[in-house]
Amino acid sequence: MATKDIYYVPEGSKWPIFGSFALFVLFIGGALLFNGNANANFVLYLGIALVFYMFVGWFNDVIGESRSGKYSGQVDVSFRMGMGWFIFSEVMFFAAFFGALFYARMFSIPWLGGLGGGSATHEFLWSAFEASWPLSVTPDPTNFDQPKEVIPAFGVPGINTLILLTSGVTVTFAHWALKNNKRANLNIWLALTVILGFVFVYFQAEEYAHAYGDLNLKLSSGIYGSTFYMLTGFHGFHVTMGAIMLLVILLRTIKGHFSKKDHFAFEAVAWYWHFVDVVWLGLFIFVYWI
């Protein structure tokens, strides 16, 4: 059935509309939660469950089709392009938050402090405010949690950088092992990557607890806290997702899935992993370091 020149057009599937509905429920749940609705949690959890079920079901179909050899090389290329551009869209999502960070550092904080074009703003509205980064005292100090200290770059964040960079290397070793059909090595390197990923998340969580509890650095600590937590938070979320995806891949390699030629899912997850890695480098430099 799968010949090279006949493109595989899948039969109708229930997952797309099911998935749309699942997202719908999920978002209603989220919105109700924000509105303080009494049934919010139920709807939200139902939504999460539906989305999860959708993912499992949909990927099962795809894995099944892939393993029964229905996909031609052309389908594989489509998948690759899909994943590549999906990652690009994620990059642009992070770009919005990096943009906010740069804007705050280069424009709004200096202006509020009377630098650049902000002399009138400073003189008439915030005359007591001093521009600084990291921002320790917000323009209006009363309504915000002023952080006592910020997290130094070369403590835990430095270690986390090493962890992520190492995991980028291990996942590449795993890929080479796969290409050379060394299944044992593949599993070991992949397992190592997964472990490194979760260790990263663990350290990050510890660090959050420290910052929130001991340093009084919170989401509500003004723009520094806002950019800090939103950037590192979304990154941490992506690492968690990536680690879970790696875990799934690991389970599949253990089951003997993938061949030395045909392992798109593996590569897609590896790309994703490199992507979170690169984002982290940006974070490390601009959020923690300079």
Binding site: W111, L112, G118, A120, T121, F124, L125, W126, P139
Partner: peptide, 11 residues
């Protein structure tokens, strides 16, 4: 015309 923005002053 010029925007009047809370927290900032336009000259």
């Amino acid at each position: 015309k010029r925007d009047a923005i809370p927290g900032f002053i336009n000259d």
